[in-house]
Amino acid sequence: MIIPHPILGPRDAQEFVYLGDASLLDRPDWQAEDASSAFHDYQYQRNNPAGVHRELWFHEQGDRSWLVVTRDTTTHEILKAELARDVALAGETAK
């Protein structure tokens, strides 16, 4: 798989480390009433979709940036790659 890095251009997926679903950017509020169950869901529960999946990849063998990659889990086609920082600041991950 080739990941189209927004700064460095096309890079081999082997340069990256995979973390998982991009919803991991949305850390729950630890002071909320339901923090315990919210953290359980955050840590352990996954949507695990067959189809379009937004996921976190770390460019460990490159510029050490975190990316949000949009990829189809049934075909391995990569539809989009963005800097995770941009995604987090825009608050776009909740979906």
Binding site: G20, R46, N47, N48, P49, A50
Partner: peptide, 18 residues
């Protein structure tokens, strides 16, 4: 491997990735 797909039809999320 289809656990996530099938159980989502019952409205469940699982502690599983495929």
């Amino acid at each position: 491997g289809s656990s996530g797909r099938v159980m989502s039809q019952a409205g469940m999320r699982l502690p599983i990735e495929s």
